[in-house]
């Protein structure tokens, strides 16, 4: 039988999916064991108990200097920035995406502008943001918004343009005004696609929040990683990276679930 026709069954799929993770873990443990056998004080690939100790210290003990739980306060700070920025991006993208996609005049005026703006490297703007808005929360949130918004607007306006022309005509023959077409035809059909666009932007959003925190901040997950880097504290950095990945993964999974629950009609539309 050809390789391309061999389909693993449910159980086999589960094990195949787990395999790369297990291989990575084994590679780490072997590497870590070899280095530690050579030099017990090696900091580069700390053993699991060392990392567990660090996590216990960071996450389950109150830091005596600041009087807070460091990992918890870092997480709250980073998530606060990330979520407020994505909320701004998402609502603005929804508005502009529908306007650009539905109104030919707005399209003529804004689509090339948005296209050019999406090519500006956001991190190159970071110094400008710091100069103009200071080092506080605003500049970090602005960075994430600038980094994610143009792509989301382009994505959504294209999705609006992809709606079958027949549907827009049909709505007009039912007497719908432009506003009513936007409200009853375009908005509800774009909402599940907005979730897709948002899922794609979670990765970039984390990139920007960590970059901003690394450069100028006094809290946040990115701040912590770059702070302890000075002490080669891999036992803190690796669990933090793991934690950030887990948070991003959970956000993605939650959005996926939300999409399936809120828009039961969407799966068959996407498949067809």
């Amino acid at each position: 039988m050809r390789l391309m026709n061999i389909k693993p069954n449910r159980q086999a799929r589960f094990y195949l999916a787990a395999l790369p993770f297990i291989l990575l873990a084994i590679a780490y443990l072997v590497g870590s064991g070899m280095r530690l056998a050579e030099n017990p004080n090696d900091k580069l690939l700390p053993a699991l108990p060392t990392m567990a100790q660090a996590v216990k210290h960071m996450a389950f003990e109150i830091d005596p200097r600041t009087g807070t739980d460091l990992m918890l306060s870092d997480t709250i700070a980073s998530l606060g920035r990330l979520i407020s920025a994505l909320a701004i991006s998402t609502s603005a993208a929804l508005l502009f995406g529908i306007v650009i996609g539905l109104l030919p005049g707005a399209n003529a005026m804004l689509s090339s502008f948005v296209g050019v703006m999406s090519m500006v490297p956001p991190l190159a703007l970071l110094p400008i943001l710091f100069i103009v808005m200071g080092l506080g929360e605003n500049s970090k949130i602005a960075l994430i918004v600038i980094g994610t918004l143009p792509c989301m607007i382009r994505d959504l306006s294209m999705k609006v343009l992809e709606l079958p022309r027949e549907q827009l005509i049909k709505a007009q023959t039912l007497g719908a005004s432009t506003w009513q077409v936007a409200l009853r035809v375009v908005l509800p059909q774009i909402a599940p696609r907005l979730i897709d666009a948002l899922r794609l932007q979670i990765g970039p959003a984390w990139l920007f929040v960590i970059a901003a925190e690394a450069i100028a901040s006094d809290s946040g997950l990115g701040y912590r990683i770059f702070l302890v880097r000075r002490y080669l504290a891999m036992d803190v950095i690796i669990p933090y990276v793991f934690w950030i990945t887990l948070l991003a993964f959970l956000m993605d999974a939650a959005l996926n679930l939300l999409q399936r629950k809120m828009f039961p009609w969407f799966a068959s539309v996407r498949a067809g």
């Binding site: 027949e166 549907q167 005509i169 049909k170 023959t173 035809v185 509800p188 059909q189």
Partner: peptide, 19 residues
Amino acid sequence: PEPDADRGVVFQRYSVFPH
């Protein structure tokens, strides 16, 4: 020069709203 409620239409496809 634009569609309105005087003229209803049924196309071969995409005539109803999937949502």
